[in-house]
Design a protein around this nucleic acid. Sequence first.
DNA 1: CTGGGTGAGT
DNA 2: ACTCACC
Length: 565
Amino acid sequence: MCRDLEETRRRGLRKLQLIKEAREVCPDVIVVLGEDIGRFRDASKTLYQFLRSFSWNDRAERLGFDEVWLDVTDMIEYNISLLNQHDLSQSFFVLQKDDPTQGFAFDATCYAGPTHPNSVTADDEVLSLRLKIGSHLALHLRNELERKTGYTSTVGISTSKLLSKLVGNMHKPRDQTTLIPPYVCRDGQVGNVVSFLDDYEIGKIPGIGSKLAQKIRRHILQHEPDFEKGLVYGETKERVTVKDVRLAEGMGPETLEKVLAGPGSPHGIGNKIWALLHGIDDTEVSLAKAVPSQISIEDSYIRLDTLPEVLKQLKKLSCSLIERMRIDLVSAVDDESDHSPRDGEFEPEQDLEKNVVDHDIKHESKQPTKARVRSPTWLAHPKTIRLSTRPRLPLNPDGTRTRSFKRISHSAPLPNYVLSLANPIDVIAEKLVHDTLIGMFRKLHPEKAGWNLSLVNLAVTNMAEAGGESRTANGRDIGSMFKRQETVHKEFTAYADEPTTPEAEPAQKSKPEESSISLNSSLEVDDNSWIEEENEDDERCGICGMPVPLFAMPAHLRFHEVKDE
DNA sequence: CTGGGTGAGT
DNA sequence: ACTCACC
């Protein structure tokens, strides 16, 4: 097994490759089944909360486990207002509005890291400046991420989710790329956005998945595109590029609508895809959510065709699901009622470490007046439970098996006792299986036998958020953790990689600077504890008295000017 | 035969 | 409520 993604790829292993094919092309590959993604999930959470903790507007959106968009438009705007236009090379980026000493020095006359294209042509000074500042912020975030967690990362800087994601792939691993102006061009010349996108295979554009890509290819090629066996997943023999589509005869939003519309496709798909092909994506980076909208656990099986075995698996999935619910949906809240647990008094067994910031607790315990405890509380109540299966299709007459990824599902109200924190997970799971899941399973598979499942998924959905619009309840606590201490590095033994996303908009106007960050792999991390020291070289600000590093003083004083207006 | 997520259509 | 498309 290779720790190194490049080596792995060089040996012919690809993502989404069939195990059979992997063994053919690389006979000494070691295939590990039954993997536990728990540690990936933890790493993902760490990454997300770290980046989110920098955000001012809380627009931080995850894509899969290892990518995050940040809409940092507000931070860029604010910092532009602080710039000394006569000394841009000695700028200071303020990371916190309420504390102008928190930040870093940077040179606002240049981009940090690589750009695409590499050479800068004079154009659109406003957008250029915004992107330059964005690129320095990205570098700072990457440096801090690596210093504090050990994770290296790759970042794209542009004005939309679409463009930041794509351009971020240009320099991997452990680097960043800024898509630079001119985004659109005058005089019929092609801007950098269109020229950047033109050579992409159509299916590589985020938002154009396999189904849409096939429909488009079929239309452009005028026949059913061949999928050659042995080719990398998602690649076709006949490459259809964005340019091919854009310049195809009669092509436009209307044609695309006709080509793409069908059952399951959203209205206006033609317009949307047409915009995407031009690098236009006006979708916003979504606000961080206090709670997920769904939690699900699934497992796949070589063969699952008896009821006793199904019940056993349902029990296992139920346990995992309840455990996950308690981790992600339960938080500790202040409880004023004078209920300090007496010795020997039963306390619900559950792991709240991830939800509670321990310094808060210590702080609380210093309060002499009232015995305050943190009581576990549901941040949201799922109202629905859903059971999905993926049946393995019966053999064809000719003995082959058609592969299907179709799922069937059934939903039911989630019984209240599942939310009981006093009972052991085990006990709840057992009851859930017998009271509810068996019945749901029978609805999906009424026959006594004859079915064979390749997958079972158990989910809770339909979250009713509890009380206080706690958008900040959980994540912020974790976010503050980063500001307080170095976080222990968790080993990340994989070659995380590649996702891909969204939709479109005029890159032109005053649009968000967005960064798409992708987590790559781990480095050794020095087991670092850092001590905050007061720097004696700091000058004190004449206005607010705060100690400010000398190089940051000009920016700090401008901060007062702006603020006091 | 990966293990998750989100959002939309019907 | 259920399925599909997409990541």
